[in-house]
Design a protein around this nucleic acid. Sequence first.
DNA 1: ACATTTGTGGAACAATCGTTCCGGAATAGA
DNA 2: TCTATTCCGGAACGATTGTTCCACAAATGT
Lengths: 227, 227
Amino acid sequence: MSHSEHNFFYLNTERTFRISYFCEGLKSRRRVFMARAKVFDEQFILDKAMNLFWQKGYNGTSAQDLVDGLGISRSSMYDTFGDKHSLFVMALKQYQKERIDPVIKQAATVTDVEGYIRDIFEFVKGEALQEDRGKGCFFVNSAVELAPVDEEVADILNTIMYDFENAICSVIKKGQGLGIFTNQYAARSLARFIFNSLNGLRVTSKFDANKKMFDDIVNVCLYALKA
Amino acid sequence: MSHSEHNFFYLNTERTFRISYFCEGLKSRRRVFMARAKVFDEQFILDKAMNLFWQKGYNGTSAQDLVDGLGISRSSMYDTFGDKHSLFVMALKQYQKERIDPVIKQAATVTDVEGYIRDIFEFVKGEALQEDRGKGCFFVNSAVELAPVDEEVADILNTIMYDFENAICSVIKKGQGLGIFTNQYAARSLARFIFNSLNGLRVTSKFDANKKMFDDIVNVCLYALKA
DNA sequence: ACATTTGTGGAACAATCGTTCCGGAATAGA
DNA sequence: TCTATTCCGGAACGATTGTTCCACAAATGT
């Protein structure tokens, strides 16, 4: 028996994902057969992948690391997520959706503008003082490792930067209107300064830095915004 | 003929470096035979290695990449620099010696304190606008990729951070005495803020950022220091 | 010419890389 | 029970990883 007769779905050239093939073909029709339900949660696995890539980077994480860390078989991993690069991209988007988008959305309805900015700095500071501070930020790590050589990843990161800058900018603008933040510089300039400072904190957290050090940095950053 | 008889120096367990073995043994005695002189300059090769690792990172640079990029044979590479990790460490120290130490030394005798700080920012800004801006900074790149998992590299990076912070701190202190910089915060706090901002710039340069963006960031950073 | 060291090209190494494929066990609705 | 799908363990793939080794060419003072 030839291979294609036995496992026809492997040969789909458009999508190598085994799971999606048959299901998608039946989207409009009624499902006739119900087969074994998924037992692992894709989001849950994706979270694990995110943390693995986050910790060791793209090149530093091997397929074996993923199999060991995700808790699913090698076959399931490739069937569900395609190849390593696809999985990385999905993990990065997961990070965007779970950790960055909420902060951006919050900006639209924020009332305590100063608290909003301070909370972001405090959050990053908090992570920088955790035991696994070496992880840094998946966003920054990916930018440093892949942005220059991986266009698909770079596009995602640039989008994040763009959205984040705009969100901060709107909050700054509101704060300037309330007389809380300085009018010495345009809101966009200050937003970029904040973005840059946060990127810096993610790098500084890679060093042997202590609480006092982060306090110093954050204090000066927030001071620079004051009216 | 056995291997050890023919090329005895390969079996030195302390140092696998072929070149150093015999020479070091003769340091105190008079050289009897003068052999072929070195034709490639180790510093020159090390510079090339530095740029390769700088561009693609440690894990992203393969042994083959090094052979192709250094312009010497695979054998010469291993004979001269040991293994890949040793070569990386040497390249990192080269970066420290050539690009960071001069800036630190300058701090001791600087008179135009404001210009000194501004020049550093302008230099980083300039590099961030170059064609190969994606390279970023070898120091920051290495911190992000290796500091959490490579103790030897982390030690070097921490030393650089420590020295740099002290250098900036002394300049800031001088500027505070002259009434040029703000006394709102301790010199060390401001130095850490500067270090952090520069780290940020190295990350921001990985994105699709333009001149205006860096101008904005640097302006606010320098503004924050003003008295 | 000789001894000695440097550098080269290439073969070869074991290990790991990312990936594919298979057979079969498990689970579900029909 | 039958069919469809999920998931696993594991073997296997060719390619590439970092590294070692060897024979030989090149250079240089004696």
